Simulated assay, not measured.
Amino acid sequence: MIKVGITGKNGFIGTHLFNALGLRENFECVPFERSFFLDQAKLKEFVRRCDVIVHLAALNRHDDPQVIYDTNVRLVKYLIKALEETQSLPHVLFASSTQEEKDNLYGLSKKEGRVLFEMWARKNKANFSGLLIPNVFGPFGEPYYNSVVATFCHQLTHGENPKIKVDGKLKLIYVGELITEMIKIMENPNNTPSFYEVPCTSISKVSDLLGQLEFYKFVYMEKGEIPSLYTNFELNLFNTFRCFLPHQETFPVKYIQHTDSRGAFVEIIRLGMGGQVSFSTTAPGITRGNHFHTRKIERFSVIKGKALIQLRRVGTDKVIEFTLNGEEPSYVDMPIWYTHNIKNIGEEELLTIFWINEFYDPKDPDTYFEVV
C-alpha cells in the first residue's frame, strides 16, 4: 500500500488525482488540509505518514505578482522544514509548469521551488520528481483561472462570447493523461529523473480550440447530436465541454414524436460515431445504476413509464434530479465523473433505451460503483 499525501487536494489537478487514487487498491490517501501549513505539528505528522507527497498547492493568480512568488516559495520551505525536522524521506513529486521558461514571478516561484526540493533530495538521498507540466485541461477546471479551455467552455455554455487575446500555439495534456503519468512515477520512483518534462499529448492554436468548441456547441447543444470524435484529444475535449453544461437547465430534452394512425415514431439519437445501444425494463420501485464513468458518453432515453434520474459529481454532495415520463419521451446525457442512477417511480413497467459510445469491455469497463 502506497500512502500518498496531496497538497492542493481541492484544486483542479488535486481533485482528479485524489479521485483516481481512490479507484486503485494499492494507494491510500493521507488527509491534508491547507491549514497544516500554518500548524507545524500537524504538518510534521502529515509528512511522517506519507510514502509519497505530491505538492500541488500554489497560488496562480493575484493582483500583486510578488505575493504569488512569496506564497509559493514559502509553502515549499514549510514542507522542507517539516521533512528535515522529522527526518522523513518520502518520494516528493512537485508540480511545476512550462511557465518556468518565461520571465514572470509565477514561473520563477515554480523554478525556485523545484530547485529547493532537488537540493533537499540530494542532501538526504531521497527520491524527488520535479514535473514540468504543459497546459492542463479537463472537467471541472475553473474558468478564468486554470486554462483557456475551461474559460471557453464556460463562456460557450453560459451564453457568453469568447474573445482571443493571443492566438498562440498551446502544448496541451488532458488531466486524466497527466494523472496516469503521475501514478506511473509514484509506482516506479527510481525510474524518473529529478527533472522530468511531461510530454504534451496535443498541440493546438487557441483559435482552433475555440473553433472546435464552437462546433460542439452547435452540434451538441443546438442539434442534440453526438459529434464525430476521431482522436483521444477530441473525445477528451468533448467530455470537458459537456461537464460545463448547466445540467438542470439543459436536461431532460424532449424528443420529437411523429404520429399517425399507426402510432408514433421517435428518433433517439444522431451521432457521428458508433457505440452500443441497449434497452432495459424496470419494475416499479426498482433502481438501476449507481455508478460512474471516467471517459464514456452515455444517454438515457425514457420511452415508457415514469423515471427519476439522479446525478452527483463524485466527491461532492449535491444531487441533481430529473423526472422523465414516457408520455413525452425525453433523454438525459450522463457527464463523466458523475455517479448516476435511474428509478422507476411509476406504477407500470419502465422502458429505457441506453446508448454508450463504446462497446462494453469486461477487461476495461470504465464503470465504478458508487451510490448517488
Rank of each mutant, 00 (worst) to 15 (best):
V206K: 13
L245M: 14
S261E: 11
P90K: 11
W337A: 01
G141C: 00
C153W: 02
G11D: 02
Q248G: 01
L89N: 11
E160L: 03
T282C: 06
V166F: 13
H91P: 07
N135C: 12
F46C: 02
K306V: 14
M334T: 15
E160C: 02
L132A: 14
L105M: 10
K169S: 09
V149R: 02
W355F: 10
R262G: 01
M186T: 01
E28G: 02
E187H: 12
R24V: 12
K123C: 03
A41I: 12
S129M: 07
N146Y: 13
R61E: 13
V302T: 03
R24D: 10
T250P: 03
P329S: 04
G107R: 06
Y174A: 04
V149A: 04
V175A: 00
S194L: 14
V277W: 02
F300I: 01
K184T: 15
E187P: 14
Y78N: 05
K123H: 14
T287F: 04
V206S: 04
K44I: 06
N19E: 10
L59A: 07
A57D: 04
N239Q: 01
T98I: 14
L75S: 05
T231A: 11
M182C: 06
G285V: 02
F137T: 05
R74T: 11
K42A: 08
R288L: 10
M119R: 13
V54S: 03
F292V: 00
E225H: 12
P365V: 07
I68S: 07
N191C: 04
P162E: 14
Q276C: 05
Y230Q: 02
I353T: 08
G289C: 07
V73F: 07
V198F: 13
F36W: 11
E298K: 01
P362L: 05
N127W: 04
N161G: 13
K110F: 10
Y174Q: 01
I53G: 07
L21W: 11
A82C: 05
V4C: 14
V266E: 12
T339C: 06
